[in-house]
């Protein structure tokens, strides 16, 4: 099934008039593909889909969920989590509180990954972790913290690399049992996060395109991984503006493994590997 530019435009307009969602600055390659998949899955033509969208809010929410991408893992890209553990989070050790925003958290795996690191570093109690996503359904999954086991056995490898090994000292090996943080039930085929982790984050629905900062605090660290790849260049810059304005000076931004700041905001951050640190700005007073 091929989606024309016109089909896509009609779809974007229909969503925009019937809801608060605005996909007009999304990257169209992937949006077209997702829309084609939705039409096949629902066995519908574009015209049928459009008329259903108007006036059927449940259906609209479902479609929004289907056209946005929600893949995530526990400790996806272990190297990143090692840098976070050994180089970034320790910088907050002497602060009385730490504010972290996980923007586009999807089903929450990386929110819990972060919490485990904070706990290992004794920073758990003084951290406030805010996690947001565009979509309510994925947030419900995130709140429950229950994931399939057999599909996700690589979570355990990722955990071992990120939590047990120290890449800067090969002789160090921390024997941290999985049970400290989650329970594996093979008969039910699930991995369930432990209660103290579930109780910690504040999950909220939030649209990066237009909601701004809904928490009225500034952040020491913002994680936004594999979200902006679905935005076009202009929208990416708007999101960088939002992040820049809501980070403390010297605060950190972590993007996905292959995401980077290419435009005007590049000069306002120092790049250290995958991490961006907000530069301290000095105002020149003549």
């Amino acid at each position: 099934m091929t989606i024309t530019n016109q089909d896509l435009q009609i779809f974007i307009n229909a969503i925009k008039t019937s809801s608060n969602y605005d996909f007009s600055e999304y990257s169209d390659k992937s949006l077209k593909r997702r829309l084609a998949k939705v039409l096949i899955d629902y066995k519908m033509e574009i015209s049928g889909l459009i008329s259903q969208l108007k006036g059927n809010n449940t259906f609209l929410e479902q479609v929004v969920k289907d056209v946005t991408v929600n893949t995530t893992e526990l400790f996806r890209d272990p190297n990143i989590w090692q840098i976070l553990k050994y180089h970034v989070l320790p910088k907050f050790k002497n602060q009385s509180s730490i504010n972290i925003w996980h923007a586009g958290c999807s089903t929450g795996q990386e929110v819990y990954s972060l919490l485990m690191l904070l706990h290992e570093l004794d920073l758990f109690e003084k951290s406030k972790v805010y996690a947001t996503d565009l979509n309510n359904d994925v947030l419900q999954v995130a709140k429950k913290g229950v994931y399939k086991y057999r599909f996700n056995i690589n979570y355990l490898d990722n955990f071992d690399k990120s939590m047990k090994e120290n890449p800067y000292n090969y002789e160090e090996y921390n024997e941290i049992p999985y049970e400290k943080y989650f329970t594996i039930d093979k008969s039910k085929d699930i991995i369930k996060m432990n209660q103290f982790l579930l109780d910690k984050p504040i999950f909220k629905k939030h649209d990066l395109v237009k909601d701004g900062n809904i928490f009225y605090v500034k952040f020491d660290l913002i994680l936004c991984r594999n979200v902006i790849i679905y935005f076009n260049y202009e929208l990416q810059n708007k999101v960088f503006d939002l992040f820049y304005n809501n980070l403390y000076p010297n605060g950190y931004l972590l993007l996905g493994m292959h995401e980077s700041i290419l435009g005007p905001y590049a000069s306002r951050f120092d790049k250290m590997g995958q991490f961006y640190q907000k530069k301290e700005m000095f105002t020149y007073m003549p």
Binding site: S27, K29, S30, V69, T71, I229, H258, E259
Partner: peptide, 13 residues
Amino acid sequence: YIELGNRIALSTE
């Protein structure tokens, strides 16, 4: 993905 405008786009679909 190869995009118009001479850019590459990545996706985790």
